[in-house]
Amino acid sequence: MSKSFEEYWKKNLTLIGVLLAIWAFVSYGLGIFLVQPLNNFWIAGFPLGFWFAQQGSIYVFVILILVYCVIMNKLDRDYDVDEQ
């Protein structure tokens, strides 16, 4: 396997790791494990933990996929493995 392929794959794995860490932190961290302390703060008519659990986490999921698409498309071009 060529060096550039190894590098491409490693960067891909790092990106997946970072995005999944955010995914887990927002949904399981803020929406479940920390929901009770966060519910003591009311922001814009919502208890914060409840908002992350029923609204915020879903917005974050959508953004994570968009970020992945944009970065991977660039990575594909940089390492010359994109579809022509």
Partner: peptide, 26 residues
């Protein structure tokens, strides 16, 4: 279901959307 479960209804809201992140990345 959410209306009767309150906060616990979260399992469906996050559970049936969060899987798309796994699907898209993995």
């Amino acid at each position: 279901l959410v209306s009767f479960m309150g906060y616990a209804g979260t399992v469906y809201l996050m559970g049936w959307t969060g899987g798309y992140v796994l699907l898209a990345l993995l």
